[in-house]
Amino acid sequence: MTTQTDTTTAETVAEDVPVESQFRRDLRTRWIPRFAGYIAFLLFWDWASGGLIRAQLLPGPLTILEEMWGIVASGELWNHFGSTLRKIGIGWVIAFALGAAIGISMRHPWWDGFFRDWVVTTMSTPGLVFALIAAMIFGFSPVGPIVAIVVTSFAFFTVNIAEGVKALPKDLFDMARAFDVDSRRRLRHVVVPFLAPYIFAAMRYGFSISWKIATLTELFGASRGIGFMMRREYQLFNMSGLLAWIFFFFAFALLLEKVVLQRGIDHFFRWRQTAAT
């Protein structure tokens, strides 16, 4: 009556396989596949350039690097990049001020009713719409991109800050009041530190939107800026030029967003165990 059912006889499961060192496992599962990914990408690119699409339409990596170097050497990069960045800076500050004011006012249901529809609508409208309209109204003036940035990104500040205000911890507030802390210190030590992560999340997100919308608006109407250059190269069918500007766009967007902004945020939140996403 003792038929073995669960054949878990495992006396010989000797673990004589040497334990893989951490380094080797890392190499095998992380670095080699990653490296293989890049190699595969480069090989595909190399093959596609000529094999899939005519070589002029997909220049190899080296041609693009040369082109990028040319742009840097000629000083064009700083000219156009600076122009775009200035617009972003101005638009972003205005969007933040406007968004924060509306977000705080939305604590009150009446103002919530007043603004809610606009916030939702601007958030769900394709940026193209604002870019086109701004370019149409303001033509080649730098005001166009700034207006487009404000309109597309203010709602993200609003929503984040409104959420933060709504989530303000009542218990800390009550505690501060119980200890007779005056309202200015309450604001400084309770409200601002609590809202900070919401504000920073909005700032980072607003920034990445600003980049894209600024470039897009420049594409339709501008005489300077990264978007304008992309448009020019596109119309000239100059693929290496277009790709060079796209890479610049990427390099700067990523550098500014992930390194500069994220570093700043991490520094600000070093008291926190888990960093704000």
């Binding site: 009556m1 003792t2 038929t3 073995q4 059912t5 669960d6 878990t8 495992a10 006396e11």
Partner: peptide, 15 residues
């Protein structure tokens, strides 16, 4: 799975 040893769970000799 165990490192060693056996487990038997039976009902009237069957599974």
């Amino acid at each position: 799975t165990p490192t060693s040893g056996t487990v038997r769970i039976t009902e009237n000799g069957g599974d």
